[in-house]
Write a protein that binds this DNA or RNA. Structure first.
Length: 435
RNA sequence: GGGGGCGUAGCUCAGCAGGUUAGAGCGCUGCCCUGUCACGGCAGAGGUCGCGGGUUCGAGUCCCGUCGCUCCCGCCA
């Protein structure tokens, strides 16, 4: 017998069906037994009149516990009394696939850390499932757009012999007789693809950062979305791509899940208008000062409170949730970011802020070998271990640039969540290696 | 790495300025209930108050240490 999903019951009134799922609730009364079954498509009420004395099926229902996995055979009937869609299933057969222990270790309002201990139970809740439905839709929309623009998908190695210079700390792993590192970023390899003539590339894959960061937006392993585009004129081309691509992704998510997201997470998905507001870092600091926000310290960057404040100002002045901040000084950017020809202390780089958090870092890359060498020396980067990378630029490299971001940060903002752990299937942090 | 907060029943929490047998709601167990739908009613079980030490006649409560969790900063995406 084939399985019927609960969402399909409406079209099966009068038919005998098999539904398979979890015991969501059990109301075992004197004359009637009510069972609410949940599967990935919804909830359904199952009923069984209780005989006196109870028959074998009555007894079987009585022994059920919440969250047990069961297979139900019964006839679908329409009944206006039923609040759950005006439908119910008259129970005819019950198979207990797996009886759950009676006391569950977590409740919907349990602390996040405890819910992660029991993530498989936590994820049974429909609103948690929605997170991953949205992730799937978003990723699909990204690929849809990339393919329309002739991008090639990469799968770069995660074992590396040296750092890919992103400032983040590396995980060391034993590698036969030597030592390897887990990739912090596919940065060098996506640039290699450009040097290889692929034109435009993307990768969605894991990256590893050995930062002991205890915040709501960091983890030690996360899914990075990376893009690199060849034959550009400046970082402006990269930003122009990113904003159009993101607008497409958000439009797709809104049309597919907009109502569910609003109902479940009380967050509206806003499809952004183009172009996104742009401001230089210097301009951003002026805006912050004018708004009375304490000017960021001597560092050549924005701290998280300043990023939040800047987003709020842009939202108020332009009605826009996104903001590109451009032209970061060389002091806070890696050696491979291209510098402005007329202002060599500034890079052709950008961050993309969304609702107060840093979503993306991007830049035009330096593709001229001698210039790249000079910048590495200027930043005191030991080029010995990365000669293979520098070689990409010795035999004809196109001007190019790109960006990368953490998938869960996108999802977190999209769903109005306050922690990446909520939207990560299985979180990995400094003290979290299980489950 | 720096700073703040928290750790009491399976879960979420309350325990005021230290004072006999540590509480609530939910969950769990049992009984009752002609259709419930967050069902309802009655009864019951369940806690070495994270751990170690100290102060005190007396510590869940105060002090020190330690472990764990959490948030912010640093770092980043």
């Amino acid at each position: 017998m084939t399985r019927t999903l609960i969402a399909e019951l409406r079209g099966k009134v009068g038919e005998r069906v098999t539904i398979r799922g979890w015991v969501h609730a059990l109301r075992d009364q004197k004359r009637m037994q009510f069972l609410v079954i949940r599967d990935e498509s919804g909830l359904a009420q199952v009923i069984l009149p209780k005989e006196d004395p109870p028959n074998e099926l009555n007894e079987a229902v009585s022994t059920l516990t919440a969250e047990s996995a069961v297979t139900i055979v019964g006839t679908v009937v329409a009944d206006e009394r039923v609040k759950l869609g005006g439908l119910e299933v008259r129970l005819e057969e019950l198979h207990v696939d797996s009886l759950a222990d009676p006391e569950l270790p977590i409740a919907p309002d349990s602390a996040l850390d405890k819910r992660i201990d029991w993530r498989f139970l936590d994820l049974r809740r429909p609103d948690r499932r929605l997170i991953f439905e949205v992730q799937t839709t978003a990723e699909h929309a990204m690929r849809e757009y990339w393919r329309g623009e002739k991008f090639i998908e990469l799968h770069t190695p995660k074992f590396m012999g040296s750092a890919s210079e992103s400032g983040a700390e590396l995980f060391k792993v034993e590698y036969f007789e030597t030592q390897a590192y887990l990739a912090q970023s596919p940065q060098f390899y996506k640039q290699m693809a450009i040097a290889a003539g692929f034109g435009r590339v993307f990768e969605v894959g894991p990256v590893f950062r050995a930062n002991p960061s205890f915040t709501s937006r960091h983890d030690t392993e996360f899914t990075s979305v990376d893009v690199e585009i060849g034959w550009i004129d400046s970082h402006e081309d990269v930003m122009a791509f990113e904003e159009a691509w993101l607008a497409h992704v958000l439009a797709r998510v809104k049309e597919t899940h907009g109502e569910a997201i609003e109902a479940t997470f009380d967050t509206e998905v806003v499809v952004p208008s183009l172009p996104f507001p742009r401001v230089t870092l210097e301009g951003a600091k002026d805006m912050l000062r004018e708004a009375g926000h304490a000017a960021p310290g001597p560092e050549d960057d924005l701290d998280p409170p300043s990023e939040r404040a800047l987003s709020a100002i842009v939202k108020q002045e332009h009605g826009h949730e996104f903001a590109f901040v451009t032209d970061y000084p060389t002091t806070v950017r890696p050696f491979y970011h291209m510098r402005h020809p007329d202002r060599p202390n500034l890079t052709r780089s950008f961050d993309l802020l969304w609702k107060g958090i840093e979503l993306t870092t991007g830049a035009q890359r330096e593709h001229r070998y001698q210039q790249l060498l000079a910048q590495a020396e200027d930043k005191r980067v030991d080029v010995g271990p990365i000669q293979y990378y520098l070689n990409f630029f010795r035999f004809g490299a196109p001007p190019h640039g790109g960006f990368g971001f953490g998938l869960t940060r996108l999802l977190m903002q999209l769903l109005g969540q306050d922690n990446v752990r909520e939207v990560t299937f299985l979180y990995r942090g400094p003290h979290r290696l299980e489950p």
